[in-house]
């Protein structure tokens, strides 16, 4: 984990879009994939919207390998569970107690479409948007600066906490803590690892609170930013349309299913 998330630095039109536009488009694609009727909507959106956008953003190979990596465990589970444990249906073949059903295979394919859609849309967003730029625009859009503080700080400190956890693991091992063996031995090792991690971290709270208060965190005055995020009137209009479309899709999606 690092502070830039999955960001892939490239010069592209998609990268230079206003982050809020990309947030709203991400939400729009996912809402569309989950609300529009038809079983294969997910695949259509991935093929005809997400893929061209990734091409525009010059991250096709990164997006492909990352989506593959996160979707593969789901694919295995979905195919095994729905292929082989479907219950009643038309069998594809029967070998002993194994009899995969067509209905199960189709359901597995439909589910995979949704999974790949959600994974690829989120990953495309995080690959083409810098988290710090996103925070600046969220603040400008009226999201409380405390929320922005939480997100930025988390991304900054999480890697050092992971390192700290591993340091504690090594330290406790060198004092003779057994971390390998049967389940009972491994489970017993958990508390001597968690307590130092948490208690040590909580001691930082006081220091950090004083530090940010000393920098005027609670002043209530509007902040200015060193970095300007470019925006265009066209994108502002697109964002309005996207917001209406998301609400429209949700309402229609509910009506279709009634």
């Amino acid at each position: 984990m690092n502070a830039l998330g999955m960001y892939v630095a490239r010069e592209s039109g998609l990268h230079s879009l206003h982050p809020l536009t990309k947030v709203l488009l991400t939400l729009l694609f996912i809402t569309a994939g989950l609300t529009l009727p038809g079983n294969w909507t997910g695949y259509f959106i991935v093929a005809f919207i997400v893929f061209p956008l990734a091409f525009w953003g010059r991250v096709v190979s990164n997006l492909f390998s990352a989506t593959w990596k996160v979707s593969l465990p789901f694919a295995i589970s979905v195919i095994l569970i729905h292929g082989f444990f479907w219950g009643e249906g038309t069998p594809v073949f029967e070998v002993g107690i194994l009899s995969p059903k067509w209905e199960g295979a189709i359901f597995a394919a439909i589910s995979m479409g949704r999974i790949i859609l959600v994974m690829s849309v989120f990953l495309l967003f995080s690959m083409t948007t810098r988290p710090d730029a996103l925070m600046i625009t969220l603040k400008q859009a009226g999201v409380p600066s405390s929320i922005a503080y939480i997100i930025v700080t988390t991304l900054q400190i999480a890697p050092s906490f992971q390192r700290k956890a591993l340091t504690i693991l090594d330290a406790q091992r060198s004092r003779g803590l057994e971390t390998e063996g049967n389940l009972y031995i491994r489970a017993k090792a958990l508390i001597p690892l968690i307590l130092p991690l948490v208690l040590g971290s909580l001691m930082e709270v006081e220091e950090r609170a004083i530090a940010i208060e000393a920098r005027g965190f609670n002043s209530g005055k509007k902040e200015t930013s060193l970095i300007e995020i470019p925006d265009t009137p066209l994108q502002k209009n697109i964002r309005r349309i996207v917001i209406f479309s998301i609400f429209g899709l949700i309402v229609l999606g509910v009506l279709w299913r009634l």
């Binding site: 939480i150 700080t153 400190i157 999480a158 050092s160 906490f161 971290s201 909580l202 709270v205």
Partner: peptide, 9 residues
């Protein structure tokens, strides 16, 4: 943020 980092760690 410290708590979220603790979740991850």
């Amino acid at each position: 943020p410290i708590a979220i980092a603790i979740n991850i760690a």
